[in-house]
Amino acid sequence: MKPVYVKSKGLQDTELHYCPGCSHGIVHKLIAETLEELNIIDTSVLICPVGCGVFAGNYLACDAVEAAHGRAPAVATGIKRTCPDQPVFTYQGDGDLASIGIAEIVHAAMRGEKFTTIFINNGIYGMTGGQMAPTTLIGQKATTAPLGRQKELHGEPIRMCEMLSSLGGLVYAERVCVADVPHIIKAKRAIKKAFTKQLNNEGFTFVEVLAACPTNWAMTTRKANEWVLGPMAEYYPLGVIKEV
């Protein structure tokens, strides 16, 4: 029998610490497959975030650097500018990227840094236990927004793809999700395209993944993915937001 699907060489053998049904594991696999297919496991450097993705360097097979909270784009800039032939990518959550690290991601995009950012948007701070993120939807409850996010108090959620797409240095921004298999296949295509554009030195590439956090959303995995495909995808439209 021939293998139809086996674990990618882009992953280490380590067991993931993520909660059951968490999207991080799926996105890790898509990145691993991309690195393997583009033959860049051996040359790439991953910049890990602070948040649930903090251990990603123990899971993906490429070299990795752990950044301070939000600073992954600055760390990636330091690496990519000094090692321009190396594929470099950051893997960041919404607290990391859209809150504390908003300056770093905006300026990396503005400068057109030639690395790729995979942005995990699950609308919540996962690692710290479900606090409100800049991406938490209006009405969505969080441990620091016990009555749900309110527009008057907290403002409206940030759409990072659209915000960054106004910057000239960004050449590709696509929003995807991994809530079911057809969407996973699309997400893989987007991640691979982003890396390919990086390898062609085109500019800053950005893939936002709408991700499920069943634990902190207090939902079953099924309900969580319905939430992704429903309210989340409604506020954060899926598809290519910018392509130069």
């Binding site: 029998m1 139809v4 699907y5 991080h24 594991g25």
Partner: peptide
């Protein structure tokens, strides 16, 4: 049917699929 949908969606790389 060996479609590998299960393997693709598994976050923990638990599943491998083979087909003739």
């Amino acid at each position: 049917i060996g479609c590998a949908s299960c393997a693709r969606i598994c976050p923990d790389s638990v599943i491998s699929v083979y087909r003739d």
